[in-house]
């Protein structure tokens, strides 16, 4: 090895890095290094802490009843808001719609996302994969509200779909403002989430395993049922949980595509906070939603495991 010339200097970036390292050493000495992990998750802990504080405030508000003579919350605590919410048939209807809708949307989304994710993982031609990715991400980058608005235009009485139908002699029909439109909008919104969560699970299934199942006598549907689906279960559970919780708490799609009569719980909460100014009842509803969602997710965890969301914590 030839010796570097005496006037050799390391590049500026290297020297800057040295400086940064020395600075880091002074601010956070080596002896603290076993705590470095904590240092990095401190922001996250603070954020979660704030969230908990917020929940406590909401909990406090939920116990106070609104006085319509002064429009101030009561001084004393009571469970009136909870009783009111549980006794109301409106909220029961809305809660049932949210829950059943979330289940339906989850199932439909997984059914649609699975073949899409499968194609993404298995397709050999790079340009097809790219096309699939772009098709997936393009709507992902368009916000939920804009997309819902797009559906209003496309599915409206004089929108593209009805125009196309009229070409084949079908009279314009109401495609929007009903339960179906809300489910459709939600499935369309959730699809990329589900695909993205399924892809890692499917990537983990070697193609050879499918080939093997075929050579052992399994036809395509049987490979899917006996091999692919069970092996993709962690991904399906992970994707299902994310889609379910996002749908259960969704606001924009039911508000925009539901025509006002397809409220989800979030819409009912919004109404209490912003339309009737009853923060107590709104808080009670919000906490009940949090509780219901947590219980359901907990049940899934208990029955099926956490899927990919377990992050390898449990086998």
């Amino acid at each position: 090895m030839p010796n570097p010339s005496p006037d050799f200097r390391y590049p500026l970036r290297w020297r800057l890095m040295d400086g940064v390292e020395r600075l880091a050493d002074t601010l956070w000495p080596r002896s603290m290094s076993r705590h470095t992990g904590w240092l990095f998750i401190t922001p996250a802990i603070l954020l979660v802490g704030l969230l908990v504080l917020g929940l406590i405030q909401i909990g406090d508000a939920s116990l106070r009843v609104l006085d319509t003579a002064t429009f101030l919350p009561s001084e004393d605590w009571s469970l009136t808001n909870y009783r009111k919410a549980l006794a109301s048939s409106t909220y029961l209807t809305v809660a049932w719609r949210s829950l059943s809708g979330a289940v339906l949307v989850t199932v439909l989304t997984l059914i649609l996302a699975f073949p899409y994710a499968y194609a993404l993982v298995r397709v050999r031609k790079a340009w097809i994969r790219k096309a699939l990715l772009i098709t997936l991400f393009l709507p992902f980058f368009i916000g939920q509200v804009v997309r819902a608005y797009g559906w209003l235009i496309i599915l409206g009485n004089s929108g593209m779909v009805n125009e196309a139908l009229s070409l084949v002699g079908v009279a314009p029909m109401r495609l929007l403002f009903n339960y179906g439109a809300v489910v459709f909008g939600l499935v369309q919104y959730m699809l990329p989430f589900a695909v993205l969560l399924l892809v890692p699970a499917l990537t983990a299934i070697p193609e050879e395993t499918e080939t093997a199942a075929g050579s052992l006598g399994a036809s395509w549907p049987r490979i899917l049922w006996h091999v692919l689906l069970p092996m993709a279960k962690p991904g399906l559970i992970g994707a299902g949980l994310v889609v379910f919780t996002l749908t259960l708490t969704d606001f924009a799609v039911p508000a925009m595509l539901g025509g006002g009569s397809q409220d989800y719980i979030a819409n009912a909460i919004y109404d209490q906070f912003f339309r009737t100014a009853d923060q107590g009842l709104g808080s009670a509803l919000a906490l009940m939603l949090v509780a219901a969602g947590s219980v359901l997710v907990g049940l899934v965890f208990m029955v099926f495991g956490a899927g990919t969301l377990a992050m390898g914590g449990r086998k």
């Binding site: 048939s89 409106t90 209807t93 809305v94 719609r97 009569s261 339309r275």
Partner: peptide, 11 residues
């Protein structure tokens, strides 16, 4: 009134 209206409409 609002909640009564909602109750009817959301049913």
């Amino acid at each position: 009134w609002f909640s009564k209206f909602k109750e009817i409409m959301q049913g």
